[in-house]
Simulated assay, not measured.
Amino acid sequence: MSAFGSVFMPEMAISWFDGSNWSESKVVPSDSLNLHAGAHVLHYSSTCFEGLKAFRHEDGSVKIFRMDRNIARMAQSSELLALPKLDQEQAAQMITSIVARFASDVPEPPGSMYIRPTHIGTEPAIGKAAVPTLESCFYVLLSPVGDYFSGGDRALRLLIDDKNMRCPPHMGMVKSGGNYAGALQPTMKARAEFKADQVLFCPGGDVQETGAANFLLIDGDEIITKALDSTFLHGVTRDSILTLARDMGMKVSERQLSVDELLERAGKPGCEAALSGTAAVLTAVGTLIHNGKEYNVGNGGIGETTLKLRRALNDIQWGRSEDKFGWLRDI
C-alpha cells in the first residue's frame, strides 16, 4: 500500500499573483509547476498550506469538511508571512471545482480525498531576505488516501521536551513548512533514542503541541488543552473535537497545562491523552517519556473517550449522523 499522501490526482488547480491581480484559475498537470531558481519560496520559505478532506457518502454525494475554516486559516497564514493577500472566494471555487473534477476518485469511508491548498512566494529575488515577495502562486493538490489506521490502531509514545519550542512564538499560528522542518530533527532523535513517535513540545514546562498535531488530555469527563494564543497552531480538528465534547456534555478547559500536572493526572485510572489532526482525526497517546522515565497514560492503551470522540467526528464526515454544526460543504 502506498504511503499516506504519496499518490496524487494527475491534475491540480492553479492561479498566479503578478503583483497586482490573481490570474484566472486553470487546471494543469500536477507535475507542471515551473519556478525560477531564484523564487522567494526556495530561499526564504515564503510558503503556507492547508490540509482538509472530502468524503464520499452512502448516497454517492461528496462533501468537503470545514473548508471555510481552512481557507480562513490559510488567509491568516498568508498575512502573517507577508505573502500576497489570498482571494478566499477564488480559493473556495478552486477547491470545490477540482474536487468535483475528480469526484469519482474519492474513496469510500474510511478513505477520503486529502486536499492540499498551497500558497508560495514566486518572485525571483534572492536579495529579498528581509522583504516580502510581490508575486505568488496558489494551487490545490488532491491525494486519495485510505484508512489512516490500516496498519493497526495503537497508542503513541511521546517524548516530553520541556525546554524547546516547536517554532518561534510569532510563527505558531502559521501553517508553514518551515515549522515542520524545524521539528523534524528533534523528532528523529526522539525516535532513535526513545522509540518515541513524536515530541511533545513544552517550553518552560508549558504543554503546547507536537510537531504535527494538537495535544488533548482527557481526565474523566474533562478535556484539558492549551488555550489559543499565537505560539501554536489553531487546529481545525482540535476545534471540531472540542465542539463535539461540549455537545456531549463534557467539560472543556482551555488553559495552561504544566508538565507536572500532566504527569500527575496521566497516571490516574481512566485518564487518556490524544493528538488531533486532519490525517488521523484523534490518535491515542499511551506513554509519556520525561527525563528518561516512562509514564503510562491511564492503562497505556487506547481510551474509550478517545474512540467515542473520533467516531462522532467520523460519523459526521461520513454522513452517518446529522451535521448539525454545518461543517459539510457540497461540491
Rank of each mutant, 00 (worst) to 15 (best):
G177F: 12
F325H: 15
I316A: 00
E108K: 14
S45V: 05
N34C: 05
N21I: 03
Y180S: 11
I316H: 00
K175G: 11
D153W: 00
P117A: 04
D206G: 02
L262Y: 09
A273N: 10
R255F: 12
M9D: 02
L156Q: 15
Q93K: 15
H290P: 00
S32G: 05
I241R: 04
D105V: 01
D162I: 01
A279E: 08
S150L: 09
G303L: 11
G277W: 05
M9Y: 04
D219N: 15
S6D: 01
F325L: 12
T187N: 06
I331M: 09
P144M: 07
G151S: 11
G303Y: 03
N21K: 13
V145N: 12
R255S: 09
R56K: 15
S104K: 14
L134M: 13
A312Q: 11
A227M: 12
T306G: 04
A284W: 03
L257H: 11
A266I: 09
V297S: 04
G204M: 14
A130G: 05
N296W: 03
I223E: 03
V174S: 09
A39H: 08
Y139G: 03
E135K: 15
T287N: 05
Y44M: 02
A274T: 03
N70H: 15
N21S: 13
M250L: 15
R56V: 01
K251F: 01
A266T: 10
G121E: 13
N179D: 11
R265M: 14
F149V: 00
A280K: 09
S6A: 08
L257R: 12
D197G: 10
M171L: 13
A279Q: 06
Y114M: 07
P132D: 11
V27N: 09
V145G: 12
G270P: 09
G249Y: 03
A130M: 13
F55K: 04
G267N: 04
F4Y: 15
Q198C: 03
D260G: 05
F8Q: 06
V174D: 02
P84S: 03
V281K: 12
P203I: 06
D229C: 07
A274D: 05
V62H: 10
L242H: 10
T210E: 09
I331G: 10
A91D: 06
D162C: 11
C137A: 15
Q198L: 09
M74Q: 14
S230I: 02
G326H: 07
K175F: 12
S77V: 14
G319T: 04
G151D: 12
Y295K: 11
A100I: 01
S276D: 07
K175H: 10
A130H: 14
N314P: 00
G211H: 08
M1K: 08
V106M: 05
Y148V: 12
I289A: 06
R73H: 05
